[in-house]
């Protein structure tokens, strides 16, 4: 076999396998810089890579989105549960805060008065619409007796009518059977407060010439020491004077809405507590004296 026989085909193969790569290696001065003929391929492959990448990220994104959705759904459910729990807690806390505020006010009132008061909770209302009574959770076993006054910080509520051992019924001052001795704070004119409807009562037995105007405050007279003296009942909202009548019709809106009450005070002993400002009391006495002189 003659190894030196010239074969062009073989030569080309050897060149392409060994020589060209060696030449290329020698030509490459900067390995980081790609030769010009590679650049189109880099561009094309980069483009294809981008497409693949986009496709891949799309698929991954969709899958992740689905997986996330499952998670989101779970999380959402959990968050909803947590949210409702927190809302309930917040509601309870708000309720407790309000109750605390109310009870604090009641406590302050109780501490700063001479009266002997018993705190009671409203537990029921009347069976019938046209009768205005409330039931409280205090009865004769707690010292409650019939006709004891029931008040709250804002004013008079009513009085006890049916004390049982552990519960009592309060006849609200808006009930048509309720009657409380009252005076007009400004002029000391005296009358009887009687229930009219669930939102109002009437000051009866005032004389035609008694001084009473819209906006006047009506307070308790303190008669019989059942109610404290000068405690707010309500404000005059309407005065009707008839020429031929000996009295006048005075409508009073109670200062306390008995239908929003939750806690009340039963006055076990008013101890002659007087809420009238001294000036008013003196003025009233002077006016009375003047009237007597006249």
């Amino acid at each position: 076999m003659n190894y030196f026989t010239f074969d062009l085909k073989k030569l080309l193969i050897i060149l392409s396998l060994v020589f060209i790569p060696l030449v290329v290696i020698n030509m490459e001065h900067n390995p980081a810089q790609r030769p010009w003929f590679v650049k189109p391929f880099i561009f094309v492959s980069g483009f294809i890579e981008n497409i693949y990448s986009g496709f891949s990220s799309g698929v991954r994104g969709t899958t992740a989105l689905y997986l996330n959705l499952v998670d989101i759904k779970k999380n959402n459910r959990q968050l909803q549960i947590e949210n409702s729990e927190l809302s309930a807690q917040l509601g309870t806390l708000t309720e407790l805060k309000l109750e605390n505020q109310r009870l604090n006010q009641l406590l302050n009132f109780k501490e700063n008065t001479k009266m002997n008061l018993l705190t009671a909770k409203v537990i029921g209302k009347d069976l019938l619409i046209d009768h205005n009574t409330l039931t409280i959770n205090r009865g004769t076993s707690h010292g409650v007796k019939e006709f004891m006054a029931v008040i709250t910080i804002g004013g008079v509520v009513g009085y006890i009518v049916q004390p049982q051992a552990y519960t009592s019924q309060i006849l609200l001052l808006t009930d048509r059977y309720a009657s409380i001795d009252a005076i007009v704070q400004r002029s000391r004119a005296r009358g009887i407060i009687e229930g009219l409807n669930k939102d109002a009562c009437r000051l009866n037995y005032l004389q035609q010439d008694d001084d009473v105007k819209e906006g006047d405050r009506i307070v308790t007279s303190g008669l019989n020491n059942i109610f404290p003296k000068g405690f707010t009942i309500g404000n005059v909202t309407k005065v009707e004077k008839s020429r031929y009548d000996i009295s006048q019709e005075v409508t009073v809106t109670p200062s306390v809405n008995p239908f929003t009450l939750e806690e009340v005070f039963v006055v076990l002993n008013s101890n002659k507590e007087n809420f009238l400002p001294e000036e008013l009391e003196n003025n009233g006495q002077k006016e009375k004296a003047e009237n007597k002189d006249l």
């Binding site: 069976l127 049916q162 009930d175």
Partner: peptide, 8 residues
């Protein structure tokens, strides 16, 4: 039985 719940 129900009268106790009202002032009627």
């Amino acid at each position: 039985s129900t009268i106790a719940l009202s002032s009627i």
